[in-house]
Each structure stands twice: as structure tokens, then as C-alpha cells.
Amino acid sequence: MERVLSTGLRLPALPRVRVAPARATLARVSRFSGALVCAAALSAGTARAQSQKPPAPPQSAASGESAGDLRGWLVRIHDAAARSSYVGTMVNSTGTSVVSTRVGHYCEGKNTLERIDALDGEPRSMLRVNDEVRTLWPRYRVAVIEPVDPRASFPSLVSGSEKHIPDFYELHVQPMERIAGHDADRLLLKARDDSRFDHVIWADHATGLLLRVDVQVAGRTLESSGFSDVNIGVKPDAAAVYAELHRADGYHVVKPAILHTKLADEGWVMQSAMLPPGFQALDCVRRALDMPGETGVQAKVLQAIWSDGITHVSLFIEPFQPQRHRSEGLTVIGATHTLTRRVNDMWLTAVGDVPPAALDQFVRALERKQ
């Protein structure tokens, strides 16, 4: 079996290893995938100095808060993720599996450094220096270099602007709880339609740092991600990142070629009126896949990403190959749904933390240009 990287790249030389998805902070290990370009920051977050005290939690009623209240909470959470230095253990539970990672995230001047070590499964480390992420596989002495993902990952939560999020999620502030040793504000972001799931989030009361996120439907938790322990406000430890990078000297380096493009430029049309409401195009890239067992043979794949500000959908488009694309259907892991479908001579894969009907809308909305 070929290795499937977070970018979709397959490395046949390293069998029986499936690379865990690589978001910037790898909190939801089984859900978050890819790494394409640097994340877009909220203007309110980038304008704050690191030395500035964290803003106080928004003051609002117990339920049915205003759009402004929700935006205030989201900005606070995003700012905390951008400026905080912390070390902790993150746990992702899908109901069928539990995966833990050790995370060190450091803000040192204008630099962002991060080290993430998998505590379960195949040994691997992810090292981030600003806009670049390097995933190290010590058993195989392979280093995979990718840009930072445009999709905000735990504990940042928001991708791009928070402006329209209240149109699709209703905020309910619930009683405070204690999470990972910290007093936490508990918020329910209730979906306003059937195209997305509810999110229950816990944010550190003192700093706003996101501590836990549960993805729910009708009160049932599909997936839970968060800290089991975390120390907020630690002294930045750049040596922890750079020392591991130096230990990887001599590794075989894999750097997938990625070209930013548009669906229209690649011969596709997305009928926006058919998409679930609120999802906006975030990025589109074209890359080559090394075909397993076929030296020198490559296939091109497109990946287009949409976001409603909280959750994301990726649509992968590639030529149909019967030896690889054997069955259509739906796969569910926690909150992540994956829909595969053959359309003429192409193979489409839609992936997202959304209900299956929403994925079906993305697949049906895609058309070839005439």
C-alpha cells in the first residue's frame, strides 16, 4: 500500500504507513488535512501587540446572543491562538479511535515556531517555522516540506474573516466549566441549517485560548478535540524546534510541487447557486501525484477548498484510474465525511466536516466547461 501524504502525494517506497493529516497545530489529527499556503489572519488579531493584555470575554446574555457578541468571542479566540506561547497535550477522539499529540507553540518576536510530536502510532514530528511545515518520519528518514495550511486549525478556529459566521451559526453562552486545569467559557455555536454541524467550544477564561471543541449533531458528539493539559504563557523555546530540524540533516526531502490556480482556469465551473449557503472559495491548487508502482508516471490532481469560516470542504479532482479508484461511496470517521464518485472520465473526492448531503451538493455543482 502506498503512503498517502497530507497533500495527497503517494510515496510507494515507504509501504504500510499512512501519514496523519497535517494542520498547523494538528489538534484534530484524524480530521485536518493538507498544507497549501499561509493561513489568512483576522485583521483584528494581527493588529494587536503580543505584550497587550488579552481582551476580556464579551459580556452578553445567557442565550441567543447578537452577531456582534459572536464576532467578539471569535476574535478573542483567534487572537489568543496567534499570540500565545503554550505547551500541552492534545487529544482527538472520533468515537472509534483516540490519538494524542504533544504540542509546543511559541511566539518569539515576529516568528511563529511550533513542534508537534505524535504520541500514538508511527513516530513522527511536525516542525513549523513561520509559513513552512516540515514533517519528519524518523523510521524512514524522510522529511516532507509543505506550506502552512490556509484552513485555521485548533486552537485558532476561524478561517479568514469572522464577518459572516453569525449568519450561519447562532451563539449560546453556557455555564463555565473547568477544562484541562483551566476555568473555561463554554459556547454553543448552533448551526442555523442542515448544511453544517453544531460546535461546542471551551475557551480559557483568562486568555481566550481555545481548549476544546466538540462537533455535534442533535446533541450527539461526533468528534472531540482539545487539550488534556496545557501550560499557557510559557517562555518561547526555539531550541526545541531547531534542534529537531538539525537532527533531520541527511533525511530524504520530499517537497510536493504545488501551483495555485482557479477551477475555471482548469476547465471547471462551480455552480455557486447549488452550493450550501455560506461556503466561500478559500484556495485552489494543482499538484502532481507520483503513481505507486509506476516509475516516472504522474497524475495531476486539483484540490479546491471552501469554508464557512468555521468548517471546511475540500474537493479533489483527478483522472479516473480503475486500479486505484475501485468503489464509489461514503466514508465516515468522526465528524469527517468523505464522498467518492466517478463522473465520466474523472474521479471526484469530497471531504469535509459536514453532513453527507452537503458534500453531495459540492459534487453535483461541479461541471466541465463546454
Score class of each variant (00 low, 15 high):
Leu275Ala: 01
Pro138His: 10
Trp137Glu: 14
Leu157Ile: 10
Val354Asn: 00
Leu315Met: 09
Glu177Leu: 01
Ile165Lys: 04
Asp249Glu: 15
Val133Tyr: 01
Pro21Ala: 05
Asp237Tyr: 02
Lys369Asp: 06
Val103Gln: 10
Arg18Leu: 12
Leu5Val: 03
Ser33Phe: 06
Glu108Arg: 08
Thr311Ala: 00
Trp306Cys: 05
Val285Glu: 07
Gly233Cys: 07
Pro292Cys: 08
Gln52Glu: 15
Ser63Phe: 03
Pro21Thr: 06
Asp353Asn: 03
Gln174Trp: 04
Thr207Trp: 08
Cys107Met: 10
Leu187Tyr: 03
Asp214Thr: 04
Asp193Val: 07
Arg31Tyr: 03
Pro155His: 10
Ala56Tyr: 00
Pro15Glu: 10
Trp137Leu: 15
Leu348Ser: 03
Cys107His: 10
Lys262Trp: 03
Ala191Lys: 07
Leu113Asn: 02
Leu119Met: 15
Phe154Lys: 08
Ser314Val: 01
Asn111Cys: 02
Val313Lys: 00
Val144Ile: 15
Gln361Tyr: 03
Met346Asn: 02
Asp131Val: 04
His78Ala: 15
Val269Ala: 11
Val269Ser: 11
Cys107Glu: 07
Ser161Leu: 04
Gly121Leu: 08
Gln216Cys: 14
Thr89Gly: 01
Glu146Ile: 06
Ala288His: 12
Leu339Ile: 03
Val144Pro: 00
Val253Glu: 14
Val332Ala: 03
Met176Tyr: 00
Leu119Trp: 08
Gln321Thr: 09
Leu210Ser: 08
Val217Glu: 14
Ile77Arg: 01
Gly334Thr: 01
Leu113Cys: 04
Lys255Ala: 14
Val332Tyr: 02
Ala81Thr: 10
Pro123Gly: 08
Arg139Cys: 06
Arg342Ile: 05
Arg326Ser: 04
Ser327Asn: 05
Ala13Asp: 14
Asp214Val: 05
Met270Lys: 04
Ala273Cys: 05
Glu294Ile: 04
Arg102Glu: 14
Glu328Arg: 05
Gln52Thr: 13
Glu122Gln: 13
Val301Arg: 14
Met90Cys: 06
Val301Thr: 15
Pro123Lys: 08
Gly104Cys: 11
Pro54Arg: 07
Ala218Gln: 11
Asp290Gln: 14
Arg151His: 06
Val343Tyr: 00
Val173Leu: 04
Thr112Ile: 02
Asp265His: 11
Arg364Trp: 00
Ser125Met: 10
Val230Asn: 11
Cys38Gln: 12
Ala238Cys: 02
Ala299Met: 12
Ala80Ser: 12
Phe316Met: 09
Ala20Val: 13
Ile305Tyr: 07
Trp202Lys: 00
Phe32Gln: 06
Asp149Thr: 12
